[in-house]
Amino acid sequence: MDIFGAAFFALLTIGTIGAGVGVVLANRITTSALLMAFTFLNVAGMFVLLGAETVAMFQVLIYVGAITVLILYGVMFTPQSPRPYGLFFQTQKYWAALFVVPIAIFVAVVAFEFRDSAAAGGSGGDLVPLATSIFGDFAFPFEVASVLLLAAMVGAIVLVKRDEE
């Protein structure tokens, strides 16, 4: 029943927004990383709610799986000395607030525009259309994407290599 849909959505929203805020404000860096993973999960849930299960699957695999791990590796290799909480934030925070607040207003306005629109979430799954599109119309970009990944991988290795070799 739809009430469950709406409730589920509300839950996911709280999870997403809350975890997002947590990422930015958290005390310890590992907390930020794990909260980020949680955000990803919630977004995957929203994908499911929309009926895009395949995308949700990809989200979990790639974001929660690979990217979170990568970030954790990054955290692991860059230990920082402990510091007071105030120093977690850049010196430009006040200027940033000045610019970001108007954007927030704009965001609110935009969101408001869509309040009366019909329900989201189309019929049927998204696997068949997605596969048809990717391997049909977008086969070439798909191949190019694989080359991009290869380049990124090589680039990352080259960047991190130590000179002593």
Partner: peptide
């Protein structure tokens, strides 16, 4: 400071919006 540059980008975004 890279942060300043990012801020500039956002400021530009604001103008566009």
């Amino acid at each position: 400071i890279v942060g300043n540059y990012a801020l500039t980008i956002v400021a530009g975004l604001l103008v566009i919006l």
